[in-house]
Amino acid sequence: MTSQTDPSAGSDITVPDELQNNVVITNIAKVLDPVYNWGRRNSVWPMVFGLACCAIEMICTAASRYDLARFGMEVFRATPRQSDLMIISGTVTKKMVPTIVRLYNQMPEPRYVMSMGACASGGGPFKEGYNVVDGIDKFLPVDVYVPGCPPTPQALINGLIALQEKIGQQSIATVPWYSKQGDEFTGAVPIPVLGPDLVDLRQIDIIREEAAKAETNDTAVEETAESAMPEAA
């Protein structure tokens, strides 16, 4: 126990000498944060959400040998509305990503996303595929990336501990989900749609630009063709 008054508490209360060893003067956030984070950190409920090979290792991590219950995470919930953590365990495909974004939107805040394995982090071995999204971070904010193809259960546990450390450092005063304006990651992420290819609605301006560019190119080609015609004749 420190006997010094916390300067950030902005208090000018003087503590009598005989109480110096028993009293700490601080502010409410500094008491609340550790207690609040301790509770959240040790009861992270992941969603039952398996995509591909990594999901098998995720299940193995939850099974008796690796025993995720040691970290307070054994309560896998089948609905996003009861979950804190979404483990993206596998390749994200274009056909699947609208569903994933929708599930993410249904999770209550505070919510965390873990990108498990090479595919979820950046496309992995399937990056060049025509139906593969090259990393879930193109759509969702990712808190922890776990490398591996697939990551071993030990690696996944390491990632979960990293997430616990991250939660432990957050403060009620600054986290975006309690602030009025939020940040770019609070609120709903627009659900992508499937046109001739995957359409991220946040990129609609770039798509318009590209389309306009293609149009001007076309007219330019036509014009040159027209202007070239008489010369050739």
């Binding site: 274009k94 056909k95 609208p98 569903t99 929708r102 496309g123 990056k127 060049e128 595929g129 025509y130 593969v132 999204v133 090259d134 193109k138 749609v193 499937l194 046109g195 001739p196 290819d197 995957l198 359409v199 991220d200 990129q203 609609i204 770039i206 798509i207 318009r208 590209e210 389309a211 293609a214 149009e215 076309d218």
Partner: peptide, 28 residues
Amino acid sequence: RIEDSNPFGKNVQYPEGWLPTGDEYDVE
């Protein structure tokens, strides 16, 4: 990085001059 040569920075391509019409395929 192959993303750098794609105008959208993503693994997508659209037919030339394509614009979303609002009645795209709804997987739901």
